[in-house]
C-alpha cells in the first residue's frame, strides 16, 4: 500500500451525448484510468424557436473519473480526440484537483500537508446502489449535516462483465457531502468503517477542496 502525495489526483468530468458515456469510460480505461462513474443528465441549448417548441432539451451523460494527474491529462486528450470534442455539441471535459482519493488498494489517505483548517471540502462517496443511506448515516454520526444522493452507474477495474458484447456497468449511488475540513477525516473514517471502503470494490471516496459555499449553516 503506497501513499501518494495529495496533489497527484484529479477528477475528470466529461459531459457527453446520451449513450456515449460507456464508450468514454472504455477509452479512459484503455489509458490507465481504473474506473469511473456515469450519471444520466439533461442539457439545454439556448434557441428561442426551439424553446417555444420545447425542443431545447437533449439527453446527456456525465462521466466522472479519478486518477493521477498525468494519467487524467492523457485520458482527457485521448477522449477529446476520439469523441471529437473540438467540434460543436460533441462534449466537454473539465478537471478538478482533488485533495484526497480513497478506496482502492493502490492509494491511501494522506495526512501530510493538509490545507489550513477552516476551509470547506466536498466529499464524494461512490457506492453500490442501495447503500447511499448507510453512507449518509455514517457521515452524520461523524458530524456531517446531510448529503445529496445521485443515481449513477459505474465500473471499476474488476467490473467488466459483458452481455451481448455490451459492457454492463453496475448501478451506483454518488453521495455528495460538504463539510468543514476539520471534520472530513472523521467523516471519511466513519464511512470507511461502516462500508468497508478499504476492501476492493466496496466503493471509493474522493475529496475536492471548495472555495466558496452558500446556503450551508
Amino acid at each position: 500500500m503506497r501513499t501518494v502525495r495529495k496533489v497527484g489526483f484529479e477528477l475528470l468530468v466529461c459531459v457527453v451525448n446520451a449513450e456515449q458515456g460507456s464508450k468514454t469510460l472504455q477509452i479512459a480505461k484503455h489509458h490507465g484510468v481504473r474506473g469511473g462513474t456515469i450519471c444520466m443528465a439533461r442539457g439545454t441549448m439556448s434557441n428561442k424557436m426551439l424553446e417555444f417548441l420545447e425542443l431545447n432539451d437533449s439527453r446527456k451523460e456525465v462521466v466522472m473519473m479519478v486518477a493521477e494527474r498525468e494519467i487524467i491529462i492523457d485520458a482527457m486528450q485521448t477522449i477529446a480526440h476520439e469523441m471529437h470534442f473540438t467540434k460543436a455539441h460533441h462534449g466537454i471535459g473539465i478537471t478538478i484537483p482533488l485533495s484526497h482519493f480513497l478506496g482502492t488498494k493502490h492509494y491511501n489517505y494522506d495526512d501530510g500537508g493538509a490545507p489550513e483548517m477552516g476551509t470547506m471540502e466536498a466529499i464524494f462517496t461512490v457506492v453500490d446502489r442501495g447503500l447511499a443511506e448507510d453512507v449518509i448515516e455514517a457521515a452524520k454520526s461523524a458530524g456531517a449535516r446531510g448529503g445529496t444522493i445521485i443515481n449513477a452507474r459505474g465500473s471499476g477495474i474488476h467490473e467488466d462483465s459483458v452481455i451481448f458484447a455490451m459492457p454492463i456497468e453496475p448501478e451506483k449511488e454518488i453521495v455528495l457531502i460538504i463539510a468543514n475540513n476539520s471534520i472530513t477525516k472523521a467523516i471519511t473514517d466513519s464511512i470507511r468503517a461502516a462500508l468497508h471502503i478499504d476492501k476492493p470494490n466496496h466503493g471509493i471516496i474522493f475529496i475536492a477542496p471548495v472555495n466558496e459555499t452558500i446556503g450551508l449553516r
Binding site: 452481455i163 451481448f164 453496475p170 448501478e171
Partner: peptide, 16 residues
C-alpha cells in the same frame, strides 16, 4: 428502464 437503472440495464439489450 435505462433512466431508472442509470444505464445499468441498457436499452439495446432489452430491445433485442
Amino acid at each position: 428502464i435505462e433512466n431508472v437503472t442509470a444505464g445499468y440495464v441498457k436499452r439495446n439489450i432489452v430491445m433485442l
